[in-house]
């Protein structure tokens, strides 16, 4: 049994506090995601509501912003912020801060698009009949529009969380020590004693991400189905 474990390279996990270190690495990734998601949701809702107002200037700016996010890989944005801004402004930015800026920049765009989408999906007659009933604009949003959008929005924003978590795997590329990087360090340190560690470690990281994301995406699916009718 032990030999089999060794062959697959899972033995390393039990050595020292390797498993704990991996989990801490995942914790770093999750911390970055949670902070970015929270800021993204707040900013995204504000921007989304603004976009639904059909103001020409706002819409042109928002459109350019969304298109940039739509076609620019997050990896490229990370490089621009981490290497580029540091160079141009001459300031030294921590990698973690840079990644939060980038993921928020990306997440806000995604969120605002979701908010705008669910706002305009409310039939025009809902706005008209609230107006006919004499609601003020804020009352109309408060009692009629927002309760209807929120059911569409919650599953989609939960889904954004899993996408954010998956995207944080990129931060190792700008030197943040998260779960993949920790994995590499463990493999490197045990190169002689556990030559097959790469298989066991990366299989474990694979599973850890799955365990982190799967329940959240199941929840999102469940809510979507439940609130559909």
């Amino acid at each position: 049994m032990n030999a089999f474990f060794e062959k697959l390279g899972f033995d390393v996990l039990l050595k020292g506090n390797n498993m704990l270190r991996l989990l801490q690495g995942l914790g770093v990734a999750l911390r970055i995601s949670v902070i970015s998601v929270v800021i993204s949701i707040v900013l995204g809702i504000i921007l989304g509501v603004l976009m639904a107002q059909k103001n020409k200037v706002i819409n042109v700016i928002a459109k350019i912003y969304l298109e940039i996010v739509r076609i620019m890989p997050q990896m490229v944005l990370l490089f621009i912020v981490y290497f580029g801004i540091t160079k141009v402004l001459g300031i030294n930015m921590e990698a973690e801060k840079a990644s939060i800026i980038v993921f928020t920049f990306w997440g806000t765009a995604e969120m605002s698009d979701l908010v705008r989408g669910s706002l305009i999906s409310i039939p025009k007659t809902q706005y008209e009949s609230s107006e006919a009933l004499g609601f003020t604009k804020s009352q109309m949003y408060m009692y009629v529009i927002i309760p209807q959008t929120i059911r569409r929005l919650i599953p989609l924003s939960i889904n954004l969380i899993t996408r954010m978590i998956k995207t944080t795997s990129l931060v190792m590329m700008i030197g943040i020590v998260e779960v993949l990087k920790v994995g590499q360090q463990i493999i490197e340190a045990n190169r002689k004693t556990s030559p097959n560690a790469a298989f066991g470690i990366f299989a474990t990281v694979f599973l850890l991400y799955f365990i982190a994301c799967w329940p959240i995406s199941q929840l999102s699916k469940y809510l979507e189905r439940r609130w559909e009718n």
């Binding site: 899993t162 493999i187 298989f199 990366f202 990281v205 991400y209 799955f210 994301c213």
Partner: peptide, 20 residues
């Protein structure tokens, strides 16, 4: 595959599988 990042998938395929 929908619930894991590409980077992790690639690491597993590129660095992990050769050990097997």
């Amino acid at each position: 595959f929908r619930n894991t990042p590409l980077l992790v998938q690639l690491f597993f395929i590129y660095f992990g599988l050769p050990k097997m």
